[in-house]
């Protein structure tokens, strides 16, 4: 029984020659009202987008196989983001050209892949290289004053990561920011402007496109310092 079930759940015959597993890093935006999607809902939406795009997803082994996806740490519900990371394991390499459009077909304007890069095979896993989240905070006066806030991340969540794990720390930081800026009680608008790598971890391995994405670390240190 067991053997047959596994056979049924294993993908199409794995590639003899030519095909190689690969790692794809996607950067996606989650904006507007869709900031209110929970982490789990976002993960499901992205997984379905990948399935619709017909990508050769690689699946985990075992009883209930799942596509091997790694998402960057959960955003607090209600916080928009201009750059979340999603690493996708593929059974074979795909062309990057036109890939974002292919995945975005059918997705709403507020949930979009904006960049796709291939990761080298031995690139460290996301929890090792992901370093900081940069938030843009608008004061209660409505866009008059905005301040950048950089917070170190505890580590990437995998699969069903703890939702809102980053929340208490962000809330504390917002409170001290509120005091520092003398903002009073009004509503703050918070957007995650992006996620940044600890460059020391990846500099040598990172493809040029990635360096571009990560390249603002210096600026980031300035903000957090």
């Amino acid at each position: 029984m067991r053997g047959r079930r596994h056979a049924a759940s294993g993908g199409p015959p794995s590639a003899g020659g030519g095909r190689r597993e690969c790692r794809l890093l996607l950067v996606f935006r989650k904006t507007g009202l869709l900031a209110y999607l929970s982490h789990l809902e976002t993960m499901r939406a992205m997984e379905r987008a990948l399935r619709r795009a017909g990508l050769p997803l690689s699946y985990s082994e075992g009883f209930s196989p799942h596509p091997r996806l790694t998402f960057s740490p959960a955003l607090p519900v209600g916080v928009a983001s201009e750059g979340e990371y999603l690493e996708v394991r593929l059974r074979e390499e795909v062309a990057l050209q036109g890939l974002c459009e292919r995945i975005n077909r059918g997705l709403p304007r507020d949930l979009r892949v904006v960049r796709a890069e291939l990761l080298p095979p031995h690139f460290p896993k996301m929890s090792r290289w992901i370093g900081y989240a940069l938030y843009r905070v608008e004061g209660p006066d409505g866009g008059g004053s905005s301040v950048f806030l950089a917070l170190p991340l505890a580590g990437a969540s995998r699969g069903g990561g703890r939702e809102g794990a980053a929340m208490p720390r962000l809330r504390d930081a917002l409170e001290s920011l509120r005091k520092r800026e003398g903002w009073g009680e009004g509503e703050l608008r918070v957007v995650r402007a992006g996620l940044y790598a600890s460059l020391d971890e990846v500099k040598e391995d990172a493809p040029s496109g990635l360096l571009e994405a990560f390249g603002r670390e210096a600026e980031l240190r300035e903000v957090s310092g």
Binding site: L37, R52, V77, G106, P108
Partner: peptide
Amino acid sequence: KPARYLGEEVN
């Protein structure tokens, strides 16, 4: 569950 009210679903 705010997603109940957001719309913007695929399709």
